[in-house]
Amino acid sequence: MGYIHPQALTSAVAALVLSPQENSSVLDMCAAPGGKSSHCADIMNNTGLIISNDLYASRHASLGHTLARMGVLNAVITVYQAQEFPLRNRFDFILADVPCSCEGKFRKTGETASCKAFTGRETLPDLQKKILLRAFDLLKKGGRMLYSTCTYNPSENEAVVDLLLNERNADLFPIDVEFDGEPGLTHWNGETYDKRLERTVRFYPHRIDSVGFFMASIGRRG
């Protein structure tokens, strides 16, 4: 009936950190299964417009079902590859909750075996970088976006955001939540990242008893 929608604590925090305003425009670049889009709609009191994008038709059923069950009246489901979302529109708020290796879920789901066997993770950072750059290019001046993953791998987190800081006029904003997070890394595996990466947040399951997560709150510099 839409009165309750279960989410991991860290997943629920994503929309709260983004805090889309009423009557604003929002793009959720990788929206299925729709929990964060629905949460945004709730925060926006069903005003404005949410573009809930997901490429795969197989995910549209779960996305549409979640949006309908939650009574979302301000969303359009689009069908683009996130990294190729058309540039004709700009948005006030963008959520780039990108495909990732999902290491943060292993404690919950006990998927360590599949972690070892998981193929394709080598290509994820490249995809994530393309999505984040496209997301930034779709952001209005004065807009705000959130980059998030449910993984620990710095190659999918800090390195991705570091590339954005190098290639675009982007800045990072502090993330203030009421439970334990740790600042993002500024160096790892012989690489050094922009010092502003300390404004990103890492959440670890053993601290918060939820899914591991990474978040970066991003806007245009100046």
Binding site: L49, N74, V76, I77, T78, R88
Partner: peptide, 23 residues
């Protein structure tokens, strides 16, 4: 389908959409 009428609708109308609003 019922969808909130906003100033953004005309500009997003050309997007490839699977669904707009609530059935």
């Amino acid at each position: 389908f019922l969808i909130r009428d906003t100033e953004f609708i005309p500009s997003v109308a050309p997007l490839k959409a699977a669904q707009a609003g609530l059935r």
